[in-house]
Design a protein around this nucleic acid. Structure first.
Lengths: 135, 135, 135, 135
DNA sequence: GTGGTCTAGACCACA
DNA sequence: GTGGTCTAGACCACG
């Protein structure tokens, strides 16, 4: 899993994290029974207080999306309501549009923008492979 | 102009509003030189404090998207970003990363994602041209 | 009369002006019966809205320090309670101390500071003579 | 530390507080490295909202007089102004002008005024040295 | 009528 | 416990 926290966003960090996990669980990227990252390593990777991670997991547990087994970890429960295809596309389009709008106001042209997008796709791909090899 | 505020979203109201105005300016629905709604009437329409609207406008002014003239109002500027090259790139990367991470969580593959991005770029370009011709 | 408005001070402009006139009247710098500057020229000199000057004069009239005779002007009334010597000194020391404290934090040394003070004293003296010759 | 707020003064509370802290730092009553009172206790003592105290501290931080460390507190810095030469001169001139204008309104002549300024400079210098020796 | 500022209360991240 | 942020209400300057 890759997470991306925006400390300037105004949105509480614990909600940003919970949202990202919820999306991943809703579309099958996180399978039922799969373990979430442990508190300590994740808090170090994201440079966030452990309490904040715990708060995100607690939020998800309250919503029935994960179950915490003290001493073992936090696991995804059976997936009750996966996002439908149109919902997923709409979520993604919202994010893409925000980037495109920002590019317009920053006067970044189409080709430069597409090149930046490719770079970031490659960057996250590399990061993900490294994480999997390190397992 | 009509704006839509979601008070349950967790996202600050002033950012929701700023995003929508940025969006409208990027697709030509708000033309350069055009006046934004005055603080008081808009605050009544959206059932939000006047200062919250003012904060959204201030955010847009800091980004060079609008100019405010005390006693007169707040106007869309001709499009010129006040930021230096590295700052602009960093702002844009933040937006791109959010979209890329969302694609990852929704299990949208690289090529599909790039295709969506191209579609949205074209969509905005078309709307902008149409709005400018309709002037 | 010389007035000095600080637009950054947070203190309302009309109160800054009223205070300065009150101090001048309280210590005899403005004599009973003497006329205050007319609204229009003063508003131009201070780069302030005429309404703001009028509000300062109204404030002083409400306190019985001046009397307004419509069509003629605004005149200092009999001076009921001039500041005593210790009060005047204390008012002045407060202002001096604020300048000295600022000099310390800006790391401006004693001699440079004294030189600046002399320059400003000369500057205002010149300005005052010019105003009197222009009468 | 004890501070004295005048709610009738017209001067914003946060500026009154900032001025008093600046004064205390300039005369050595607050030493570099020393902690300012925490927001909550001070806001209760002064019967003022916590944000008002925070705004005073933010003002002092912008002037390089204190540093705030989230979660820990707000500390007096070693004295080093963050402003460029012209900005510092302009800030200082504003303060000097206020004192000079007050002297004029109170009919204090040039030489008396300069003598008062010298006295206050010496007074602060003495207090500061005494405080540093008492460390 | 316009926008700007000061003060306040509630909630969040963090040591 | 610490400081930071978002939202709100009241008052000010001004076209």
């Amino acid at each position: 899993m890759i997470f991306q926290i925006d400390f300037q966003a105004g949105k509480p960090v614990y909600l940003q994290l919970a949202d990202q996990i919820r999306y991943a669980a809703a579309c099958g990227r996180l399978q039922p029974g799969e373990a979430l990252p442990a508190l300590r390593p994740l808090s170090e990777e994201l440079r966030v207080n452990r309490n904040t991670i715990a708060k995100a997991y607690a939020e998800l547990e309250a919503q029935g999306i994960v179950e915490t087994h003290p001493g073992k970890g936090c696991f995804v429960t059976a997936n009750r309501s996966p996002f439908t295809e149109p919902v997923r596309k709409s979520l993604l389009l919202t994010e893409i549009d925000e980037a495109v709008v920002m590019a317009h106001h920053l006067q970044v042209d189409k080709e430069t923008f597409l090149q930046l997008v490719r770079e970031r796709l490659d960057y996250f791909e590399t990061k993900l492979e490294a994480a999997q090899n390190g397992k």
